[in-house]
Design a protein around this nucleic acid. Structure first.
Lengths: 129, 129
DNA sequence: GGAGACTTTGACAATCATTTTCATTTTGGC
DNA sequence: GCCAAAATGAAAATGATTGTCAAAGTCTCC
């Protein structure tokens, strides 16, 4: 029985940027889906555990999710106004993190890197509007 | 009247790694300080706003704070077991983030970079214990 | 020294995302 | 059809954070 989980995954796929669990839930209900908030949370966690979606925390500390195009390790460049997200690979950062870690004797080094900015569309709007 | 705020700041200074607001509050009470949870939150926010302390989110989504040695922009290498924290500068990362942003037409680019690992002390413990 | 204005404080209630609980439903195998 | 295991979801619980508001502290001006 993975219908619900698939539905959640589909909803994420159709979204441009990162969406919160509450967000996904609200959208699914809007489109008439019969699903509970609990299930959305569980589906999202399962997808994240399985590496199917990426998770990060927004400024409010909420978990936000995104179905990413690539399976490989990558980071995100997120517009802080419209949420538009670009996936970026950064071999330089990977190497840097590894190096910094080993320099200080740390092992099993992982890292979180997120880049925020204002995308061209939004910065144009700010100027005109 | 900045006594409380200073007290909060002092408590942070005495700490090795990142501490949550609840944590700081509990510790201050332990040491006999008469202070309210609300005030700790407010003090921490004020300090963070003023750039006096660094904030990040731990895996639980809690805000954690740290009084850092340097005023300049830097990142952290945090031991995921003991919380031991090393401040690291990473010009390479700064440049990378800037580059990635401008490549995609993003302006006002900021970034968050945190590196987690297991420090030498802890990895030794894991092996023996 | 004291009055008044303004800020800080803190107990408590309110919020809000997330998790837990638990009874019901569904699915799959037999 | 029937049973066991997994999935579902409504409602309650949790827990960090924020808002409220009255009491207390601080400062200035007299």
């Amino acid at each position: 029985m993975t219908t619900r989980r698939d539905a959640v995954h589909d909803t994420l796929r159709k979204s441009e940027g990162f969406r919160s669990a509450q967000d996904v839930y609200a959208e699914m209900r809007l489109h008439g889906a019969k699903i509970g908030l609990t299930t959305v949370y569980r589906a999202l966690q399962a997808l994240a555990d399985g590496g199917k979606v990426d998770v990060l925390r927004n400024d409010d500390g909420e978990s936000v999710y995104r179905a990413c195009a690539t399976d490989t390790h990558h980071h995100h460049l997120v517009c802080r106004r419209c949420g538009h997200t670009v996936e970026v690979a950064g071999p330089a950062v990977e190497r840097w993190a590894e190096m910094v870690g080993s320099e200080h004797g740390f092992t099993e080094v992982t890292h979180t890197v997120e880049v925020f900015g204002t995308c061209s569309t939004c910065s144009a709007e700010v100027k005109t509007g």
